[in-house]
Each structure stands twice: as structure tokens, then as C-alpha cells.
Computed example of a mutant assay.
Amino acid sequence: MDLFQPSPSAHPGPELPELLPLGPDGIVVRFGRVVSPQLSAAVLAFEQAVQENLPDGVTEVAPSLSSVLVRFDPARGRRDQVLTALRKLLGGVDWLAETLPPASRIWHVPVCFGADQAPDLKTFCQLAGLSSEQAIAQITQTPLRVLAIGFAPGQPYLGYLPPAWDIPRRAALTPQVPAGALVAALRQLVLFNHASPTGWFQIGETAFRPFQRDRTVPFALKSGDSVQFHAIGSAEYSALKNRSDGLGGARYEAGA
């Protein structure tokens, strides 16, 4: 029997996600192929369940937008044992009906929407059918969650914004957006930790750096954290950029 194929008789009820091998020490638990708020809730709920019931030998649990990567140390846990533990956690639960687990931390992050810091805001708003004021209000009034961290160290994918934000990527790349650029990407916001090319729309900028190598805690954000953005003016933004801690005025408080 294929270790990665669930047994229907062993798992009655909701269909299980796919269990896929990844190299000699990884298993990908894939909940779907089309990213959605429902899928993200399933991913974060399952990641929390694995973290709270960590199978023997597991060394890393990392969510993406549609799956959870589970890595294990082959010297401390066999693949079949880890698979059995994952199936036990998956079985009998309709993960796509799960709600987002409560955030353990709520981050408050200042962001500037000035013309120099949001060069694509006007164009994006025209495509989305929003005024700049409406777009900024939706960014700052919507509690966003860290759905995944990737592409670059510490870089968060934050969601979800209302359906009007479901705007496709631009036809041509912007050669470079600066570190701290906040870009709109299919109902999500992505916060660039370093300068980078992108096909998405830069609609704001923050002095917050989610990753800073020499900081006491280099990675500020964790998957599942809640992020609340707060609009600030250009003068305050300039002052925050000079802070050496890379937090740019961001702070967090305990959640649930």
C-alpha cells in the first residue's frame, strides 16, 4: 500500500488532504490548489494542531498558502510513523470547515500612504473601483493574518482584504520596489523586507522590517499572527526609518 494514500476504511467522514513526499525528510500536507480564505483557515488550524501534538522526530512545521510542510529527523522518527501521526490528526475533521484559530499576537504596524511611498495606489484603486480613501480605510480597518512567510527571509503574506482587491498581477515587472514596500497581491498584502522586483502594486511603505539578522529576535512575525496597519504621515515615517531596531514603530500585544 502506498504510504501517502489514505485508507478510505480507516478514515470515514470528510475527505483527507493530500499527503505528499518532499525529499528524504519532508511531508507536504496539501489542502487544495486554489488559495482562498477557507483554505488558509484550514492550513493555519492544522498547523496549530500539529504544533500542539508534535509527532516524534518532527523538527519543523511550516505553513504555506495552501499546504503545511512537516519536516522530521529520520534518526528520531520514521516516515511511516510521522505519516500515521499526521493521519490521526487529520482524520474525522472537516478541515475546510474550520475557522481561523485565534491569533496569539496582534501587531500594530505604522504605514505611510504618501505619493512617494504609494506610487501605484491611484492605478490600483482605478482597477479595483475604489477611491484612495476607501482603499486606505480598508487596509487599516481590516485585521489581517500572517498566512505564510516565504520568498525571502521573514517576508509575510497577509490576508484577506475584500473581494474588490482581487486584481491580477501587472503585465510588466517593476524593476525594484524598496525595502518596506507594501504591495497588493490578490486580496493579500505582501511586505517586502528587502528591495526587490515585483509584478504587484506598491500601495504603501513601512519602516518595519520583519527580518533583521542582528536583532535579538531576527524574525519578528510568526504564521497566524494578526497585523493591524495604522496610517502615518511622511514626516513620522521619515523619523521611524532612522530607528536602528528595524521595527519602525511596530509593536505587538498578546492576543487570545
Results as ranks from 00 to 15, higher is better:
Ile136His: 01
Pro197Phe: 03
Asp120Thr: 09
Ala152Val: 15
Ala41Asn: 03
Gly224Lys: 02
Ser40Cys: 15
Ser9Phe: 14
Ser66Pro: 00
Ala179Gln: 08
Pro17Lys: 11
Leu22Gln: 13
Trp107Gly: 00
Leu65Glu: 05
Ser226Gly: 12
Met1Cys: 11
Asp73Cys: 08
Gly159Lys: 06
Asn242Trp: 02
Met1Asp: 14
Phe201Gln: 09
Ala115Arg: 11
Asp2Trp: 02
Ala10Val: 10
Ala250Met: 05
Pro24Glu: 11
Gly246Ala: 09
Phe151Pro: 01
Trp165Val: 14
Arg243Trp: 04
Val93Gln: 08
Glu133Asn: 04
Leu186Val: 14
Ala207Ser: 12
Glu205Met: 04
Pro153Trp: 11
Leu22Pro: 00
Leu144Ile: 04
Asn242His: 10
Asp225Thr: 01
Leu69Asn: 07
Gly249Ala: 08
Pro63Ile: 13
Gln188Cys: 14
Pro12Asp: 04
Pro8His: 02
Leu3Glu: 10
Gly114Lys: 01
Pro24Arg: 05
Gln202Glu: 13
Leu173Asp: 10
Val58Leu: 09
Gly248Glu: 01
Gly26Asn: 01
Gly204Glu: 09
Asn53Ser: 12
Ala62Leu: 14
Arg213Gly: 13
Thr142Arg: 00
Phe192His: 06
Ser226Trp: 02
Gln48Asp: 12
Asp214His: 13
Leu83Gln: 06
Pro8Cys: 07
Ser66Gln: 14
Val43Ile: 05
Pro74Trp: 08
Gln126Asn: 09
Gln134Val: 07
Ile139Met: 07
Gly23Cys: 13
Ser104Ile: 09
Gly26Thr: 04
Glu205Val: 03
Phe211Ser: 02
Ser67Lys: 13
Cys112Asp: 13
Ala41His: 03
Gln38Pro: 03
Ala137Gly: 08
Pro6Val: 06
Leu100Asn: 14
Pro175Cys: 10
Arg169Gly: 03
Ala41Trp: 01
